[in-house]
Design a protein around this nucleic acid. Structure first.
Lengths: 218, 218
DNA sequence: TTCCTTATTTATCGAATGACAAATTAATTT
DNA sequence: AAATTAATTTGTCATTCGATAAATAAGGAA
C-alpha cells in the first residue's frame, strides 16, 4: 500500500526553513515524539514525523543524545516559572490560599502528557537532570512552604526538619500521582483538578499543624 | 581485552537444567533485567545475563513479547496477597491501625526497585494489565477503606463517592511516590518508611473525617 | 556400552538502527 | 543571469535487533 503523492506539481517538493526556525521546530516536535514513543525510538521515526529525511537531523544535532539533552532543557528548565517562588512567600495571603494558587498554576504547566511522560522516561533512564529537578522542587517549593507554615502558626522560624520535608513530599507526590493517573494511566476519576488539589492541601495543612505542634513540644 | 577462560577443563561447558527449572530462572532473571534496562533492551543482553545463548530463549518463549507477558504476571499477579483485603475489613481494630499495618506490608512487597521500575515501564507502554492493576487497587483497597471510614465514623454505609475515592488516591499516591523517590530517583530523605506512612495516614484520616462530615450535611 | 531424547549452541537471515559522505537543489548574493 | 552559499536528500556502512534452522552434546533409558 503506497502513499499517493498528494503534493501538487507546482508546489515545491522541499521547503527550506531558516536554520534557527528549523531547529526550534525539531526540538518541539522531538518533545512530542519522544514523549509518546520513548527515547529508544528511532531517529528515522522522528524524521518521518517531521517530514524530513533522517540525516538532516544530524546537521542540527551532533548525535541523538545531544538532541535528547535539548529536549530535557526545553521541558525541565524552560517551563519552570520563577514567579512561583515569591508567590509562595507572599505573606499578605493565608498559606492555604497560596498553596491552592501555586498548585493550580504549577499543574497547569506539568499536567500534560508530554511533560509527564518525558519526566517518567528520563527518570527511568537515571539522567541527572531529573535528580536536579527534584532538588529544585524540594528547595524552591517544599522547604519554603514549611517555613511559611511555621510562621503562620506562630512557631519559631527554623529550617524544616527532614521528616517535615517528607510530609510535604507526600502531599506533593499525591497531587503529582493524580496527574500520572490522569495523563499516563488515563484512569483518573474526577476531572475537577482544582477540587482534588484543594482536598489534598486541606489535609496537608491540617496534618502539618498537628505534626508541627506535637513535635514542637517534645 | 578478552575475558580469560576460567572454566576448568574437567567442568562441563554446558549445564542442562530441567525444562521447568530453566523456565522459572529465565522469568525471574528477566524481571531483574527488564526492570533495570527497560523492555526495549535486547534478548541478547538478557541471554548474556542468564549465561546462555540468545536462541535458547526461544525454546521457552515463542517471542520476546510472550516473555514480557510472563514478567508482568510474575510481578503484578503473583505478588498480590489476598489477605490484604480482609485485613482492611477487620473491625476489631481501629481503622488507622489497619491502614498502618496494610501499608506496611503492602509497601514491603512493592517498594523494591524491580517492582517499581516494571510498573513504570509497563505504565508508559500502556499495556492494559497496568490499568487493571489500578482498578484492583481502587476496588480492593481504596473503596473498602472509604466504607470502613464511614462505618467507624457512624455515618451511613453507602458506596464511596468519586471525589472521596480521589481523596484516598491522593494518600495512596503520596505513599507510592515516596517509593518512587526512594527507589527510582534515589532521592528520598527519610529511610524511616513506617514513619512516613504513619504521617500520611494520619493526615488522610483527619482530612477524611472533615470531608465526610461536611459533605454528609450538604 | 549403545541408543534416544532434548537441552543447548552455532550459524545465519532480513530488517532496523545511528551515523557519515557525497550529491542535489533552493535561496541569496553578485 | 551567473555564481555562491547552505539546506536538504540520496546512498551507504557497520551494528544490532528478533527470530529461525540446523548442528551438537548432555543425560537418562535400554
Amino acid at each position: 500500500m503506497k502513499q499517493p503523492e498528494i503534493t501538487p506539481d507546482d508546489a515545491p517538493k522541499r521547503k527550506r526553513l531558516s536554520s534557527t526556525a528549523r531547529r526550534q521546530d525539531f526540538i518541539h516536535q522531538a518533545i512530542e515524539f519522544f514523549a509518546e514513543e520513548g527515547f529508544e525510538s528511532s531517529t528515522r521515526g522522528l524524521a518521518k514525523k517531521l517530514g524530513v529525511t533522517q540525516p538532516l537531523l544530524y546537521r542540527y544535532f551532533p548525535s541523538k543524545d545531544d538532541l535528547i539533552s535539548e529536549v530535557y532543557d526545553a521541558v525541565y528548565v524552560n517551563r519552570w516559572q520563577p514567579e512561583w517562588e515569591p508567590l509562595l512567600r507572599d505573606r499578605t495571603r493565608p498559606l492555604a490560599d497560596r498553596l491552592n494558587t501555586f498548585y493550580s498554576v504549577y499543574t497547569d504547566v506539568i499536567f500534560n502528557r508530554e511533560w509527564m511522560r518525558i519526566y517518567l522516561f528520563s527518570g527511568l533512564k537515571g539522567v541527572d537532570i531529573n535528580r536536579r529537578y527534584m532538588q529544585l522542587v524540594r528547595q524552591r517549593i517544599l522547604e519554603p512552604i514549611l517555613i511559611e507554615a511555621r510562621v503562620e502558626l506562630g512557631l519559631p522560624d527554623v529550617p524544616a526538619k527532614d521528616c517535615e520535608v517528607e510530609f510535604a513530599w507526600i502531599m506533593h507526590g499525591g497531587i503529582f500521582y493524580y496527574g500520572i493517573r490522569d495523563l499516563i494511566y488515563e484512569s483518573a476519576i474526577s476531572t475537577d483538578k482544582e477540587r482534588v488539589i484543594a482536598d489534598a492541601i486541606a489535609a496537608f495543612m491540617a496534618g502539618l499543624e498537628i505534626k508541627l505542634k506535637r513535635e514542637g513540644q517534645g
